[in-house]
């Protein structure tokens, strides 16, 4: 004989689960995300000023800053520290460009044992791939729109 709970509608059961679920520590997460994310951006600003003072034009200084941060994110991932940072900082270490770098390096590193072509080469983009796809698509759409309306 079926038990009564077997007939629970998914939304009803969902509601029961929702009441039991532990809540994320929203305030603590928010503060950590703000501080860590802010610090990474402040570091970027310092780098930008340094590159400017080295005589780089503004456009190149921005690119050099992005490149340096990407390198730092990659290095920390390789050393196995970025995942620890991410555990505490949450979005604070995802949103900055170092997080983009982390998503590429973590995937490349992890699938090294599956070989350099189908492991490192292919799996490098399992998380960053969609970012490039949607980034390039949006960029092309904006370019086309601008071409048509300008």
């Amino acid at each position: 004989m079926p038990f009564n709970f077997e007939k629970l509608a998914p939304p009803v059961f969902d509601q029961m689960v929702k009441e039991v679920k532990p809540k994320p520590t929203v305030l603590k997460n928010a503060v950590l995300a703000f501080v860590v994310g802010g610090l990474i951006c402040a570091l970027g600003q310092i780098m930008f000023f340094s590159y400017l003072s080295m005589g780089l034009p503004e456009q190149d200084a921005t690119s050099a800053t992005a490149g340096t941060l990407v390198f730092l994110g990659a290095l920390l991932t390789g050393l196995g520290w970025y995942d620890t940072l991410g555990k505490f900082a949450g979005a604070g270490s995802i949103v900055p460009i170092t997080g983009f770098s982390n998503s590429i390096v973590a995937s490349a590193l992890e699938f090294k044992r599956e070989g350099y072509i189908f492991g490192v080469g292919a799996k490098m983009f399992i998380i960053a791939g969609p970012v490039l796809v949607y980034g390039f698509m949006t960029s092309a759409l904006i370019g086309l729109t601008y071409y048509l309306v300008r």
């Binding site: 532990p22 991932t77 995802i94 982390n102 995937s107 992890e110």
Partner: peptide
């Protein structure tokens, strides 16, 4: 972790559940 979720070195927070 790498099969069902994300690479181990990815900096991400695990939900409380």
């Amino acid at each position: 972790e790498r099969q069902y979720r994300v690479p181990n070195e990815l900096g991400t927070q695990r939900p409380m559940t």
